[in-house]
Amino acid sequence: MIRFDQVSKRYPGSDEALRGVSFEIAQGELAFVTGHSGAGKSTLLKLMAAIERPSSGTVLIGNQNVSKLRPRIVPYMRRKFGLVFQDHKLLYDRNCFENVALPLYINGVTGQEAAKRIRAALDKVGLLGKEKAMPITLSGGEQQRLAIARAVVSRPSILIADEPTGNLDETYAADIMALFHAFRQVGVTVIIATHDAHGINSIPGKMLHLDHGKLTVS
């Protein structure tokens, strides 16, 4: 499903963020990306979602080489993913409902059908009562859950979450992890980057540990 082959990434004007990383994630698998701050976790996830391109090596999603994608195809590629960004990237001039609606509108789902799915997604993360609230009025954890709702609303086949439980207390973190696990059980490939290792022991999954851009299999 997702295959990295000797992937290195160097940002202009900085050291290599990833060095010769190779691994494979099968369809329907759950994988955790761990490592210290600056280890290259976010970079790894961005390469998967075709947000960044590798400096060398190949990234294969399905059977498509991400670095060889024509620019026209990239948007359609990205729609396969549900993305939870580390900095959430919520729209602060739109209410919760509209934030979650964005991926659906991009996919061309509108009206009643969209409303139904948006409410279902908000319900899953426990924000159903806040659909009219503006994101700025939400707590850090609530914003994080809103970002998760937006990532799952269009029922992606691959869910990529960058530190999705960073601001959550343990019960919510466990809830969210259980939610990801549930997605996995319906066949969604789930990849989660996290720096706290103890939250993830409860759930079985593949571990990808990064240390200064190098993958150390644990």
């Binding site: 948007p75 359609y76 993913f81 990237k89 729209l91 991009i106």
Partner: peptide
Amino acid sequence: EEIEVSKLIG
């Protein structure tokens, strides 16, 4: 911001 996010999610 909206444009950026929209681009990122396809």
